[in-house]
Structures are given as structure tokens and as C-alpha cells.
Amino acid sequence: MTDQLTDAEPPAEEKLVGADRVIAVLTELAEHPLGVTLDELAGTLRSSKPTVHRALATLRRAGLADMTGRGVYVLGDEFLRLAFRNLDGRPETARLQPLLEELATTFGETAHYAVLSGRDIVYRAKMDPPQGAVRLTSVVGGRNPAYRTAVGKMLLSSRLGTLEEVGEWVGSFPLEQKTEHTRTTPQALLAELQTTRRRGYAIDDQENEVGINCVAVPVFLDGSATPTGAVSVSAVSFRTPLERLEAAVPQITDAISRHLGPRALG
């Protein structure tokens, strides 16, 4: 005998819509660490307040959202516990953290490990320097456009070799000029990727953020011919000029080899 749909059990299509709404609310909550109101969520998501309230109720029952008082919602402690437990349990995190600690201590700047995700890079691990008045705002799980970051250009250089490939990757996505140094045409991006591929490392010369420069090298963690990610050292330009970062590339690759093994360099 087949199951009959009832009012208590909506069709699969409606369930999917409901799940999508819950995920949208959860994602938007992550953008507001200080909290956000129901009215603000409904406005941002262009959804009715009852719909958003039902999604929030679902998240609160699971511990994935909390209400801090007077209608202000934040991510729940259970969400953070799950996220950090997953991150700490990833093999790459355990392997990379000692390397990033050494790089941050050696150079007095921030070290990252990031992977390519579509048109963005995602930071999988980060280590700030033990001392320093100015620190970067990047966070683990945070994203930046690949075309204007050193780690992104490093990873794109092994995937995009022709103007046609770069054009297909860019598509209708605007190459926003974040700073005066940002490359905003497929031709300029291709030239930079070719230079990156030739010298074996990538640079960000204040292309993503004024006053911040970066150097990145590829890392091969699974034995494939394509890098799984890239390790970078990002620096405040007045403290560590780009020229000094470029001169330090051999030190960075040496540290990668010692911590991850020679095969991690490809």
C-alpha cells in the first residue's frame, strides 16, 4: 500500500523549498555575528516575516540559532560546535597548522591555506603572527574572489592556460576593480596567470585590499598533478614590502617540504 500525502506531510517539492529557506536564513545569520532582527532578515531575504520566523524556529530547535533578547538572532552554539569539531577533525587542518604557525612566527605576518571554490577562494586554515599591532580580517571559511588574490591566481594558473579558457571562467562575472592595482580584463588576468605559472609563485600587490600584499605557492596534498590548495603569507605592506615576501619564497617552500614532505611541492 502506498503512502498518502496529508496536510501534515507536504509534497517533496514543498519540503525542498522549506529546506532552502532554512538554509538561506542560516547563511544570512552567519553574516551578522552581532545579531540581526526578524525584520532585517525578512527584508534581506525578500521573504515574509512568518516564513522567516518558521525557519528561525526550526534552527532554534536544533540549536543552530539563538535569540539573544528583544528579537535579535545569532548563530547558535551548537552550529559553532559542529563547525569547529569538523574543522579540527579534517586531516589537512592537523597537517597544515604547524606549517602555518612556523610561517607566521618566522615572518611576523599572517599565513593561510586556501582552496579554489568556483570563482572564489576559501580559507581552510589561518595563523596570525604571535605579535603585531595590525592583523588581517580574513577568517577560516571566509571567501575572496580568486582573480585578485595570490592564492586564487596561483590555483587558477594551473587550470586556465588560454584566453578562451579565462573568458569562459570569467563569463558574465564582473572583474570588479577593488583597488587601483586590480586586474579587470581577461587579457590582463591571463598575462598574470602566465607569469605566475612561469615563476612558480603568485603575488597580490594590493589588488584585493589597499595596504595588504601577499605571496602564495601551490601545495599538492593528494598526489595529483593539480594543486589541492595554496599556502600564502599575507603582510601589511608598510611592515613587510612585497619585495621581501618574494625573496622569502625559498624559505616558504623549504618549510612546506619539511612539514608536508617534498611531494607537497609537486
Rank of each mutant, 00 (worst) to 15 (best):
D3R: 08
D3F: 15
Q4L: 14
L5Y: 15
L5I: 15
L5G: 15
D7F: 12
A8G: 14
A12C: 13
E13M: 15
E14I: 13
K15F: 06
L16A: 13
V17Q: 06
V22Y: 08
I23C: 15
L26T: 09
T27F: 13
E31T: 14
E31V: 11
P33E: 09
G35M: 03
G35W: 03
L38R: 09
D39F: 03
D39R: 11
E40I: 12
L41I: 11
P50R: 00
H53V: 08
R54P: 02
L56S: 00
L59N: 04
R60Y: 01
R61T: 02
T68E: 10
R70H: 15
V72M: 13
V72K: 15
V74A: 12
L75W: 07
E78M: 07
F79S: 09
L82P: 08
F84C: 02
R85N: 04
N86V: 05
G89R: 13
T93Y: 04
T93Q: 08
A94V: 13
R95I: 07
P98Y: 03
L99H: 08
L100C: 09
E101A: 14
E102N: 06
L103Q: 05
T105R: 14
T105P: 01
T105L: 13
F107V: 09
E109L: 10
E109I: 13
H112A: 06
Y113T: 08
L116S: 07
G118E: 04
G118M: 07
G118A: 07
R119T: 12
D120I: 05
D120N: 10
I121L: 10
Y123C: 08
P129A: 02
Q131Y: 02
Q131N: 01
G132A: 00
A133V: 09
R135Q: 12
R135K: 14
L136F: 04
T137V: 07
V140H: 09
G141S: 06
A146T: 12
A146G: 10
Y147M: 10
A150D: 04
V151P: 07
K153G: 08
S157Y: 03
G161T: 14
L163K: 11
V166S: 14
E168T: 11
W169Q: 01
W169A: 05
V170W: 01
G171M: 02
K178A: 09
E180L: 14
T185G: 12
Q187H: 12
L189Q: 06
A191T: 10
Q194C: 03
T195V: 01
T195C: 00
R198N: 00
R199M: 00
Y201R: 03
A202V: 03
A202P: 08
D204L: 01
Q206E: 09
Q206T: 11
E207G: 05
E207H: 08
N208G: 15
E209F: 06
V210R: 15
V215G: 02
V217K: 02
V217L: 04
V219K: 04
V219I: 15
L221N: 10
D222T: 14
G223Y: 14
P227A: 06
V231T: 03
S232R: 10
S232C: 05
V233N: 02
V236T: 03
V236L: 06
F238C: 05
R239F: 07
T240R: 11
P241K: 00
L242C: 08
L242W: 14
R244T: 03
L245G: 02
L245S: 01
A247D: 14
A247G: 14
A248P: 05
A248F: 11
V249F: 06
A255W: 09
H259Q: 02
L260F: 08
P262G: 00
P262E: 01
A264V: 03
